[in-house]
């Protein structure tokens, strides 16, 4: 199973690499954007799709990664060090965000993450020495292992390499005890506790792992944008990521990447179709509407997202289990 995932991940990365070469600088930028969004979506899918912990703070976590990487890189640190540092910082902040989850559940915890998002956004604006305030931190082109990352094309390489590593690592994670305990946690904390899973430990580790990956994505986004500014890491971005994992399919392996590609490319597709048809004035404002509509439609008709939709289109796929939309949890203990 794992070997298959590795092969698929590498194949997708190679395909994306080829696309970035075929479509010039703009293509490279788009591929990079999809890869970064894919990494961020894998991170959030780990937390929400597998761990069952809803978080609205993903945007701010990416910001943490971008600022950390920007500072390390601007201070002369190697890009790889900056990316790893961003991962560690993302993991720490994410674990802190997760602490209320030890007490709060479901929607109540989701509200707490909203607060975390707001606090981080505020910190981005006022921690001038680190974030350069509202002006935003200008990130100079970095070098990774001595290779200067000055063009959009050069940045595609680290993004795709990290995407493959994260993608395979998440696949592996779900096949070890820790990942399995996330799945139980998602269904019911009571069941998890009864099974002898250390719920607090597992939850914090879910946040830690997810935050590490979010930090990586944030670092790559910072390098791609060359600017980390408070306006780039708002609740809107968190919402985009939630849209990605819902559209792609919550708790699936391919879903995050499919959702990321969809959410990143759909606006551009609508725009280009609109231009070709001479309707861009009408279609452009519809992009936001289209997103909202899609999410609602997916939640109603295909909660498992595009992944399930695509596998249903697949003619030979008869062996797909038909999971219910809502986790029907048999509570094992009296309240």
């Amino acid at each position: 199973m794992n070997t298959r995932h590795l092969v698929i991940a590498v194949a997708v990365a190679l395909l994306m690499g080829a696309l970035s070469l075929a479509f010039g600088r703009f293509g490279a930028y788009m591929v990079n954007a999809v890869a970064i969004a894919g990494i961020g979506a894998l991170s959030l899918n780990l937390l929400i799709g597998y761990g069952g912990q809803i978080s609205f703070a993903q945007g701010a976590l990416l910001g943490v990664g971008a600022y950390t990487a920007g500072n390390i890189s601007n201070a002369g640190g190697d890009g790889l060090l900056a990316i790893l540092g961003a991962g560690v910082m993302g993991a720490i902040i994410s674990a802190l965000i997760g602490i209320p989850a030890l007490r709060l559940r479901g929607l109540y915890f989701a509200i707490a993450t909203l607060a975390a998002q707001a606090i981080l956004e505020y910190l981005f604006k006022i921690l001038d020495p680190i974030t350069n305030g509202v002006s935003g931190l200008v990130i100079r082109p970095t070098t990774i292992l001595g290779i200067p990352m000055t063009s959009d094309r050069s940045l595609v390489v680290p993004s795709l390499v990290i995407l493959v590593i994260v993608w395979v690592a998440v696949s592996r994670l779900m096949r070890i005890d820790l990942g399995r305990s996330f799945l139980v946690l998602r269904e019911s904390e009571i069941v998890a506790k009864g099974m002898g899973i250390d719920v607090a430990h597992a939850k914090i580790l879910a946040f830690f792992a997810s935050g590490f990956i979010a930090g990586l994505a944030g670092a790559l986004a910072g390098f791609a944008n060359r600017l980390a500014s408070p306006e780039a890491f708002t609740l809107d971005l968190s919402a985009d990521y939630i849209a990605m994992i819902i559209i792609g399919g919550l708790g699936t392996w391919t879903g995050p990447l499919i959702g990321a590609a969809f959410v990143v490319l759909l606006p551009e597709a609508i725009q280009r179709v609109g231009e070709a048809a001479g309707l861009s004035d009408i279609l452009s404002p519809l992009r936001e509407l289209a997103f909202g509509l899609l999410i609602i439609l997916f939640l109603i008709f295909e909660p498992r997202g595009l992944t399930a939709l695509l596998s249903r289109l697949k003619p030979r796929s008869l062996a797909v289990p038909a999971p219910g939309a809502v986790p029907a949890t048999g509570e094992s203990l009296p309240p």
Binding site: L183, V184, R186, E187, G194, P323, G330
Partner: peptide, 13 residues
């Protein structure tokens, strides 16, 4: 170790 009266339905496991 213990078992439960009712068993949970756990997706994906």
């Amino acid at each position: 170790a213990r078992t439960f009266q009712n068993v949970a339905s756990l997706h994906d496991l």
